[in-house]
Design a protein around this nucleic acid. Sequence first.
DNA 1: TAGCAATGGTACTGACCAGTAACACCTCTC
DNA 2: GAGAGGTGTTACTGGTCAGTACCATTGCTA
Lengths: 196, 196
Amino acid sequence: MTNDAGAQVRPRDRILGTARALFGRCGIRATGVDAIAETAGTNKMTLYRHFQSKDALIVACLEQAASDADQLWEAVEASAPGDPRAQLDAWVEMVDGLLKDSRGCEFSNAAVELPEACDIVRDTITHYKKTQRTRLAQLCRDSGIPEPERLADTLALMVEGARISRQAVGADGPADSFTSCARTAIGYFASVREPA
Amino acid sequence: MTNDAGAQVRPRDRILGTARALFGRCGIRATGVDAIAETAGTNKMTLYRHFQSKDALIVACLEQAASDADQLWEAVEASAPGDPRAQLDAWVEMVDGLLKDSRGCEFSNAAVELPEACDIVRDTITHYKKTQRTRLAQLCRDSGIPEPERLADTLALMVEGARISRQAVGADGPADSFTSCARTAIGYFASVREPA
DNA sequence: TAGCAATGGTACTGACCAGTAACACCTCTC
DNA sequence: GAGAGGTGTTACTGGTCAGTACCATTGCTA
């Protein structure tokens, strides 16, 4: 299998895309740099000309994944400008979409696969996760939820759980109920005490 | 570091305990059989006399982890015999305890680390996860929850999420809120419609 | 005490992997 | 057309890993 080999895509981008695909499908540790280079239609030397090391490649993959997540957030906000409560619903839909085609969160997977990774990798993971949590809490707050942090944490736990569960037992497991459970949680937190 | 080396513990049990500890701390793929044998105070040959392969060792670790989980469930039931609702609260406490000292669920970690593992490993993981889900749903049902499966899925997602989140961002992340969020969910599902 | 089963120790094989060196090629620009 | 930067190719190093062969040792039992 090749990834855009021969197309007008720069080797660096092919390598990055291929690495993310293989890291996701086979796991980070199980994927060798040779396999990445070959699948990307290039060779190991070119890979090392663009990325100082495999760790650097991993960080670059995570940074691109973070950028993708930013775009998803922008799409959520654009779906209902000025209506944070509708954006919260759109966020649930967005996450539900993530559950369908992905093997799981690239950051969580990296955290599990590389418990003793270098500082740069760990920092990239924690920074991303904290950003997501903050952003979700802000959306809950803007939606007028009385306890925005608690709803945000509830939803964050459910997303993480759904993405992991899907890897462990597939789509038939609890991940299947994510949308329903998340909507219930939002409805409850929104109704328990209306804001003053 | 050695694991009960020299004590009156059979090599097989030392190997198993050490393997679980190292798999948890360093990751499965990052842990070599040499390291396991040495840390267990024995050698690789003895390891291979007890376990046909590293995969077989992994399966044995997961089976022991499943056995540990059974004991935790028995403790939950014994904490409030005949009072399933109190058992549900005890279950939350039990999970909260799990969050404190573990690196995460050994089954979920294995699923993430070994996406292309052999059938035996995959089957062990899915069987365990389905058993846990069924058992939790039964406890919710016995507690008189009107929608036991949905509460069970909500709680299952939150447990999975909390254990993963703890690995990714530590105890300061959403995992910190698990107990509070889980109790809220239980309270809501129990109150929304009392059973007939 | 003889024997047997379990264990310890050493050394090895074959495979894989991250990373590097040296050189050839191609394409674009000046 | 000449140089330069990016790319392709091959071959290599040093290290790690799973798994095995072979033999020595211990400890229990008959």
